[in-house]
Design a binder for these strands. Sequence first.
RNA 1: GCGGCUGUGGUGAAGUUGGUUAACACACUGGAUUGUGGCUCCAGCAUUUCGUGGGUUCGAGCCCCAUCAGUCGCC
Length: 378
Amino acid sequence: MAAGPIQFEITHICTQSGARTGVLHTPHGDVETPMFMPVGTQATVKFLSPEELYAISAGVILANTYHLWLQPGEDTVAMAGGVQKFMNYKGPMLTDSGGFQVFSLADSRKIKEEGVTFKNALNGDTLFLSPEDSIRIQNRIGADIIMSFDECIPYPADRRYAEQSMERTLRWAARGKAAHERPDEQALFGIVQGGDYEDLRLRCAEELVKMDFDGYAVGGTSVGEDKATMYRMVRWSVEKLPLDKPRYLMGVGAVNDLLEAVSCNIDMCDCVLPTRLARHGTLMTSQGRINIKRNIYKNDFTPLDPECDCECCRHYTKAYLNHLFRSHEGFGTRLMSIHNTRFLLKLMEEARQAIRQDRYNDFKAETLSRMKFDERGF
RNA sequence: GCGGCUGUGGUGAAGUUGGUUAACACACUGGAUUGUGGCUCCAGCAUUUCGUGGGUUCGAGCCCCAUCAGUCGCC
């Protein structure tokens, strides 16, 4: 294992599928891969306390550079001693670079070689974020893993734009790496872009590998493309990546997508899906999806998911969750967020187990047919 | 017993110089949701109907009569 802030140890390779398990050693503890990482944009996984995250065996959680930069500001987080101390999370953390906001806030930004001009949604101010700024802010926020500042392009994107954007993302990656001031304490990952173009994905990955990042991410997926396209983009993106470095598929959290990602030797995924779905009343269960606000659950006094070991499923009924949701009670949102997040964490625990037993392909097929989710995967 | 006011969908209620598809909100019923947009978005939701029964009119939730119900005041 090479020196550096994190070490990645591969512990088993499934003889049936080629999928792998591993351990990511970080300054804030070891986590097993492949793993799902809950998203806590504003230095909180919405509605969940750190204690609740420990209780459902969450490992790495995310925070977002862009959001923390706007509020409370990098100075405050730095004065707190870093984001982990600020929010009292004792496990490892990862910050997204703000690159996704280039995509998601497309109405109010301008992209230039130097960086991106945003409009602050909170007060209308014009703000500017460069790759160097993003890394500086992430250095001060202090997560264990930080991300290159990239551009996440929409789908579909024409080839000319995808190529120009990808080349710029490479230049931004190099600039960010040069600006990284804490390489011994924070791992920096590069992000593969290139849209739905094989040669662009391959080239982007190859160039990033030459720069020697601590890990590599696949970006630009889950932006409206169909599943076949997404899986194609992932496979092209990882083809040229070194096997001994961690691989992170960004923004993916549907069950079928997670299982496919593991097949591609993806070690890390993050997604807002479990918490967002919970807030809107949709629950993922071992029997398929449940919309808890439906009237059929009004007098259903059975657990949400009898196979789940979370606080919500062990102590509460669907009737109670239905009542809490209709009453707009935050406790219901909290319980359902716990469940959905635990559901994906447990799915990955089971995936790791199947890999260790050299039966990952069987597990994947059985799981997909058993859970009866639709094509979306939730 | 007398007088006033009110009666529109599950709820609150718009709706008079009488004129096509009865506003809006909430609730309700579905749906959406992938590097976060908690309190969001989309769609549906009174169509033999405006307490009931008559009448006037080409046409009535709107005008007239009766009646029932609720409510306030007086005796």
